[in-house]
Lab assay of single mutants.
Amino acid sequence: NQASVVANQLIPINTALTLVAMRSEVVTPVGIPAEDIPRLVSMQVNRAVPLGTTLMPDMVKGYA
């Protein structure tokens, strides 16, 4: 099972992602792969992401 990126805190809309804001977890459905965490740092989310939410490619500006 592949680990996905999960919000480690509430991430407000247009907030730049940080290492502290993300964690890796095996979840269903699978979201952005955990190995992409370094690439996600400083990218912005295009919606509010609640704690525990799996990050999907369409939630991160410039990711997809």
Rank of each mutant, 00 (worst) to 15 (best):
Q44K: 13
G31W: 00
D58P: 06
V20G: 14
Q44F: 14
A34S: 10
N1Q: 15
G31M: 01
Y63V: 05
I37E: 02
A21R: 08
M59T: 03
M59R: 00
L40M: 04
P50H: 09
G31I: 02
I11M: 04
P57S: 08
N8Q: 07
G62Q: 08
L55M: 07
P12L: 10
L19H: 08
M43H: 08
K61R: 14
G31E: 01
V5W: 00
Y63P: 05
V49I: 15
I11V: 07
T53W: 13
P50C: 09
P57E: 06
S42G: 15
K61Q: 11
T54E: 03
L55R: 00
L40V: 03
I11T: 03
M22F: 00
L17I: 10
G52S: 04
N14E: 07
A3W: 09
P12T: 08
P38M: 11
L19V: 09
V41R: 02
M56E: 06
L19D: 06
E25R: 08
P29M: 04
Q2P: 15
V6G: 03
V49A: 02
N14A: 07
G31P: 01
I37V: 04
P29F: 02
A34Y: 06
A64L: 13
Q44R: 13
R47N: 05
A3H: 08
Q2T: 12
A64K: 15
D58S: 10
A16Q: 15
V27E: 03
V26Y: 13
A16H: 13
L17M: 03
S4W: 00
T28H: 10
I32M: 03
G31N: 03
G62V: 02
L17T: 00
R23D: 05
P29Y: 00
I32V: 06
V49R: 00
I11L: 09
I11R: 01
N46C: 09
E25H: 07
G52V: 01
M43D: 04
S42V: 03
P33Y: 08
V60L: 07
V20N: 15
V41G: 04
D58V: 09
P38R: 09
V49K: 01
A21N: 15
Q2I: 12
V20F: 14
E25Y: 06
V6M: 03
V30W: 09
L10G: 09
G62E: 09
N14F: 08
M43F: 08
A7P: 01
V60R: 01
P12V: 06
E25P: 00
Q9Y: 10
M22P: 02
A34N: 04
M22E: 04
V26E: 11
V27G: 03
G52C: 04
D36W: 10
A64G: 14
P29N: 03
L55W: 00
L51G: 12
V41K: 03
S42P: 00
A16T: 11
V5G: 03
P29E: 05
R39S: 10
Q44V: 13
T18G: 05
A34V: 07
G31D: 01
V49Q: 01
L10F: 15
A34I: 06
S4H: 02
V26L: 15
G31K: 01
T53M: 13
S24A: 15
L55H: 01
V49H: 02
T18P: 03
A34E: 08
A64W: 07
E25S: 10
Q44N: 08
K61V: 14
T15F: 13
P33Q: 05
V5I: 11
I11P: 02
L51A: 15
S24L: 06
P38Q: 11
Q2M: 12
V26M: 11
N46T: 13
D36K: 10
T18I: 06
A48K: 11
R47P: 04
Q2G: 15
N46M: 10
A64V: 14
V27Y: 02
S24Q: 10
K61Y: 13
T18S: 12
A21S: 14
V49C: 07
S4D: 01
N8L: 04
T15Y: 10
G52L: 04
G62M: 08
G52Y: 03
L10V: 11
V26D: 09
G52P: 02
I11H: 02
P38K: 11
R23P: 04
P57K: 07
A16M: 13
V49N: 04
M22K: 00
N8M: 06
T28F: 12
V45F: 00
T53G: 10
N14T: 03
M43L: 11
D36G: 03
S42T: 14
N46K: 09
S4Q: 01
T15C: 10
P38H: 11
L55N: 02
T18H: 06
I37N: 02
A21M: 15
V45C: 05
L55S: 02
V41Y: 00
E35P: 06
R23L: 05
N46Y: 07
Y63L: 05
I32Q: 02
M22V: 06
L17W: 00
E35K: 10
A3Y: 10
K61M: 13
K61G: 06
R39F: 12
V45E: 04
G62L: 07
I11Q: 01
P29A: 04
Q9F: 14
P12A: 09
G52M: 02
P50N: 08
Q2H: 11
A48S: 14
A48W: 11
Q9P: 03
A64Y: 08
M56R: 08
E25I: 06
R23K: 11
T28N: 13
N14D: 14
N46V: 12
A7S: 07
Q9D: 08
M59S: 02
A34L: 03
N8E: 04
S4C: 04
L40R: 00
L40S: 00
E35N: 10
A3V: 07
A3C: 12
V30I: 14
A34G: 07
Q2K: 10
L40N: 01
P57R: 07
T28G: 05
V30D: 09
P38T: 09
T28P: 02
N8K: 07
I32Y: 02
T28Y: 12
P12Q: 10
N1V: 15
M56D: 04
L10I: 10
P38W: 12
V49E: 04
L40K: 00
L19M: 13
A64H: 15
T54R: 00
N14Q: 06
M59Q: 04
L17N: 03
V20T: 15
V45Y: 00
T18A: 07
V26G: 03
A48D: 15
V41T: 04
N46R: 09
A34M: 06
M43C: 09
P12G: 07
I13L: 13
P50E: 13
V5E: 02
Q9S: 09
P33R: 09
T28L: 10
L51Q: 13
V41C: 06
L10P: 14
G31S: 02
E35Y: 10
I37R: 06
V60C: 05
G52A: 03
V30F: 11
P33C: 09
M59C: 05
S42Y: 08
V30R: 08
P33N: 08
